[in-house]
Amino acid sequence: DKHFVVALYDYTAMNDRDLQMLKGEKLQVLKGTGDWWLARSLVTGREGYVPSNFVARVE
């Protein structure tokens, strides 16, 4: 069951495990537990961690 989110804010990666994203960017959540979610950008195809409070679910 795939679940998708949209970035509510720009996020600048703090290290090489984070995923940089721009407000409005759509992401697929690969692992969504805790404060940091592993996601893949549908724009760039890159994977990394994003802060869960920076994204909102897309139905």
Results as ranks from 00 to 15, higher is better:
Gly45Glu: 02
Asp18Cys: 11
Leu8His: 03
Phe4Val: 10
Thr44Trp: 02
His3Val: 12
Leu8Ala: 07
Val58Ser: 11
Leu8Gln: 10
Leu38Asn: 02
Glu47Ser: 09
Lys2Cys: 08
Phe4Asp: 08
Ala7His: 04
Val6Phe: 10
Met14Ala: 14
Lys23Gln: 08
Ala39Trp: 02
Val55Arg: 01
Asn53Ala: 10
Thr33Ala: 12
Asp10His: 07
Leu19Cys: 01
Ala56Pro: 02
Glu47Leu: 07
Val58Asn: 07
Ser52Lys: 15
Val58Ile: 13
Trp37Ser: 08
Phe54Met: 14
Tyr49Arg: 09
Tyr11Leu: 05
Asn15Thr: 11
Thr12Glu: 15
Leu30Trp: 04
Gln20Asp: 10
Leu30Lys: 05
Glu47Asp: 06
Arg40Thr: 00
Asp10Gln: 03
Asn53Pro: 08
Phe54Lys: 12
Lys2Gln: 13
Ala7Leu: 03
Leu22Met: 15
Ala13Tyr: 04
Arg46Lys: 15
Glu25Asn: 01
Ser41Trp: 01
Asn53Trp: 09
Asn53Ile: 05
Tyr9Ile: 08
Arg46Ala: 11
Tyr11Gly: 03
Ala7Asp: 03
Met21Asp: 00
Val43Lys: 14
Lys26Ser: 11
Leu19Gly: 01
Val58Glu: 10
Ser41Leu: 02
Asp16Ile: 08
Gly24Ser: 02
Val29Leu: 10
Leu8Cys: 02
Asn15Asp: 12
Phe54Val: 09
Gly24Glu: 02
Leu30Ser: 04
Gly24Cys: 00
Asp35Leu: 07
Asp18Ile: 00
Asn15Gln: 10
Gln20His: 09
Gly32Pro: 11
Asp10Ser: 09
Trp37Tyr: 13
Tyr49Phe: 12
Ala56Glu: 15
Thr33Met: 09
Asp10Cys: 02
Arg46Gln: 14
Lys23Arg: 10
Ser52Cys: 11
Val55Asn: 00
Leu30Glu: 05
Arg46Gly: 07
Leu30Thr: 03
Met14Pro: 12
Glu59Asp: 14
Gln28Gly: 02
Lys2Gly: 06
Thr12Arg: 12
Ser41Lys: 04
Tyr49Cys: 05
Ala56Gln: 13
Val29Met: 01
Gly34His: 05
Tyr11His: 10
Lys2Asp: 08
Ser41Tyr: 01
Leu19Tyr: 00
Arg57Ala: 14
Arg46Ser: 10
Asn15Gly: 13
Phe54Ile: 11
Gln28Leu: 14
Tyr9Ser: 14
Pro51Glu: 01
Leu38Glu: 03
Val58Met: 11
Thr44Lys: 04
Glu59Val: 05
Asp18Gln: 15
Leu30Cys: 04
Asn53Leu: 03
Ala13Met: 06
Ala13Glu: 07
Lys23Thr: 05
Arg46Asn: 08
Val6Met: 10
Val55Gly: 03
Thr44Arg: 04
Tyr9Phe: 14
Tyr49Val: 07
Asp1Ile: 05
Lys23Cys: 06
Asp35Glu: 12
Tyr49Ala: 00
Gly32Met: 15
Asn15Ser: 13
Gly45Met: 07
Val58Cys: 13
Ser41Asp: 03
Asp35His: 09
Thr12Cys: 11
Met14Cys: 13
Tyr11Ser: 05
Ala13Ile: 05
Trp36Gly: 09
Arg40Cys: 01
His3Gln: 13
Met14Asn: 15
Pro51Trp: 03
Lys23Ser: 06
Asn53Cys: 08
Arg46Thr: 06
Gln20Glu: 13
Val55Asp: 04
Leu22His: 15
Gly32Lys: 14
Asp35Arg: 12
Arg17Asp: 12
Met14Tyr: 15
Val55Tyr: 00
Leu30Tyr: 06
Gly34Asp: 07
Glu47Tyr: 07
Phe54Gly: 12
Gly34Ser: 07
Gly34Pro: 04
Leu22Cys: 15
Leu22Ala: 14
Arg40Gly: 01
Gln28Trp: 03
Lys26Leu: 08
Asp10Ile: 01
Pro51Ala: 02
Trp37Thr: 13
Asp1Ser: 09
Leu30Val: 08
Val6Glu: 14
Asp1Met: 09
Ala39Pro: 00
Leu38Trp: 13
Ala7Phe: 01
Leu38Tyr: 14
Lys23Gly: 02
Ala56His: 10
Asp10Trp: 01
Lys31Val: 11
Leu38Gln: 07
Gly34Asn: 06
Val43Arg: 15
Leu8Ser: 06
Ser41Gly: 00
Ala39Tyr: 00
Asp35Met: 11
Thr12Ala: 12
Asp35Ala: 09
Asn53His: 13
His3Asp: 14
Thr12Val: 12
Lys23Ala: 09
Ser41Val: 05
Gly48Met: 04
Val29Phe: 01
Ser41Ile: 04
Tyr11Thr: 06
Leu42Ala: 07
Ser41Phe: 00
Ser52Phe: 05
Asp18Phe: 11
Gly45Asp: 06
Glu47Gly: 01
Arg17Thr: 12
Leu22Gln: 10
Trp37Val: 14
Pro51Tyr: 05
Met14His: 13
Lys31Glu: 15
Tyr9Leu: 09
Tyr49Pro: 03
Ser52Asn: 09
Asp1Cys: 09
Val6Tyr: 12
Val5Ala: 15
Leu38Arg: 06
Ala39Arg: 01
Leu27His: 03
Leu42Phe: 02
Gly32Ser: 15
Met14Ile: 14
Arg40Asp: 04
Gln20Met: 10
Leu22Ile: 11
Leu42His: 04
Lys23His: 03
Gln20Ala: 14
Asp10Leu: 03
Glu25Leu: 03
Ala39Cys: 15
Thr44Ile: 04
Lys31Met: 11
Asp1Lys: 10
Gly34Leu: 01
Gln20Arg: 11
Ala56Met: 10
Leu30Ile: 10
Leu30Gln: 06
Val6Gln: 13
Leu30Gly: 01
Asp1Asn: 11
Asn53Arg: 13
Arg57Thr: 14
Gln28Phe: 07
Val29Asn: 03
Tyr9Trp: 09
Asp35Trp: 07
Thr44Gly: 03
Leu27Ile: 05
Gly45Gln: 08
Met21Trp: 00
Arg57Asp: 15
Val29His: 02
Ala7Pro: 01
Asp10Asn: 13
Met21Thr: 06
Thr33Glu: 15
Gln28His: 07
Leu30His: 03
Leu30Phe: 00
Thr33Tyr: 10
Trp37Pro: 01
Arg57Met: 07
Gly24Val: 01
Glu47Pro: 01
Phe4Met: 12
Leu42Met: 11
Leu38Gly: 02
Trp36Arg: 15
Gly48Val: 01
Met14Glu: 14
Leu8Trp: 00
Val6Asn: 05
Val5Met: 15
Thr12Asp: 13
Asp16Phe: 08
His3Gly: 11
Thr33Asp: 15
Thr12Ser: 13
Gln28Glu: 14
Met21Gly: 00
Glu25Tyr: 02
Phe4Lys: 04
Ala13Thr: 15
Phe4Asn: 06
Thr12Trp: 10
Ser52Gln: 12
Leu8Phe: 03
Gly32Trp: 08
Thr33Phe: 07
Tyr49Ile: 06
Ser52Ile: 04
Ala56Leu: 07
Tyr11Ile: 02
Arg57Tyr: 09
Leu19Pro: 06
Asp1Val: 07
Val29Asp: 03
Val6His: 08
Leu22Val: 14
Ala39Ser: 04
Val6Ile: 12
Ser52His: 11
Val6Pro: 02
Val29Thr: 02
Arg46Phe: 07
Gly48Ser: 01
Glu59Arg: 13
Lys2Ala: 07
Thr44Pro: 02
Asp1Ala: 08
Ala7Lys: 01
Val58Trp: 12
Trp37Lys: 09
Trp36His: 10
Trp36Asp: 10
Lys31Phe: 05
Leu38Ala: 02
Gly45Trp: 02
Val5Tyr: 09
Phe54Glu: 00
Tyr49Asp: 01
Asp35Ser: 11
Gly32Asn: 12
Val58Tyr: 10
Asp1Gly: 12
Ser41His: 08
Glu47Trp: 02
Val6Lys: 12
Lys2Ser: 12
Gly45Val: 02
Lys31Cys: 12
Asn53Met: 07
Leu8Ile: 09
Lys31Thr: 12
Tyr11Lys: 09
Met21His: 03
Lys31Tyr: 05
His3Phe: 15
Met21Phe: 12
Asn15Lys: 11
Arg17Tyr: 10
Phe54Tyr: 14
Gln28Met: 08
Gly24Tyr: 02
Met14Trp: 07
Tyr49Asn: 08
Asn53Val: 06
Gly48Pro: 01
Arg17Ala: 09
Gly48Tyr: 06
Met14Val: 15
Arg17Leu: 09
Thr12Gly: 09
Glu47Cys: 09
Arg40His: 04
Trp36Leu: 13
Ser52Thr: 06
Gln28Arg: 08
Gly48Gln: 00
Met14Asp: 12
